[in-house]
Design a protein around this nucleic acid. Structure first.
Lengths: 145, 145
DNA sequence: GTTTTTGCAAACCATTTGCAGGGTC
DNA sequence: GACCCTGCAAATGGTTTGCAAAAAC
């Protein structure tokens, strides 16, 4: 399956209709190639005069998150962002400048969570680990600060 | 220094005025003993008829976060919450039922972040690790589900 | 007395919802 | 053709801001 079609495929695989707006959004997301906000998509869509409503965008994002094609994360600033992900992994390194993100594996975090459970007495149901910084490209760009 | 006064002290130590509303909020926060939302404080304040405006609450929270006395985290649901913290640590285990939270140390996450930096080429500036589940008390309570 | 802080109300921003029409299977 | 999906506009919920009065130092 072409990487280009990942999001379109995700809709279909999950039994949802592949409509024009959804196709268009899938493309926009792929074009972004990293983390983005709902507002980013709204303005992308507006810029390309796609005539897609805000509501549709939010609904599509919600759907893609349920499906597991996107993960909704929180930037250090507190804003929400969505990042593409394969269903299995759920940790990301996000470039705070361009939004490009890389998925990282479990890296022992699950067992670390188990240790914490043991030492605190909590039952741990969920954990989040997110890393922020600059991607290699942005590190070399003019104003990396 | 009495634990009771931690938040009042935080205001003063950072060179801010210790006003009646701030004192009151410090108490409310301490009374909560764990994670809470801005809305929680607003309703606590209203319930006790303290006559503190919403804006004041948000401003105080912002301030305490800047100072490092509170950490603003994101619950798995996407809602914002604030959790008390000592300036040095920045990882928490939060009970999704009662909000009680425990701080945990670095646990090797910094070095893990360094490993990720090495393998991805990103420069990592910041990381977040948050754990959610049920605290020991809530595990024993009637409806732990 | 000067400067910071407050409360109020209005503004703002992101996200959600109701609904009638349109598109997809 | 049935049901899902869309766009619009209005509602919502959370957070911020402007400003004159009040409190703190």
């Amino acid at each position: 399956m072409s990487e280009q079609l990942a999001f379109e495929a995700a809709f279909e695989a999950a039994g949802h209709r592949l409509t024009r707006p959804r196709r268009a959004l899938a493309e926009l997301i792929e074009a972004r190639g990293g983390a983005f906000s709902a507002a980013d998509l709204v303005s992308d869509a507006r810029a390309r005069r796609l005539g897609i409503g805000r509501a549709t965008i939010f609904r599509a994002l919600e759907l893609l998150e349920e499906i597991g094609a996107l993960d909704r994360i929180n930037l250090p600033t507190g804003e929400h962002a969505y990042v593409p992900c394969s269903p299995a992994h759920h940790h990301h390194v996000v470039c705070r400048r361009c939004g490009r993100s890389v998925e990282i594996g479990d890296l022992g975090l699950s067992s670390l969570a188990r240790d914490v459970a043991r030492s605190t007495g909590y039952r741990i149901d969920e954990h989040r680990f997110e890393l922020f910084g600059l991607c290699p490209d942005c590190l070399q760009a003019p104003t990396p600060a």
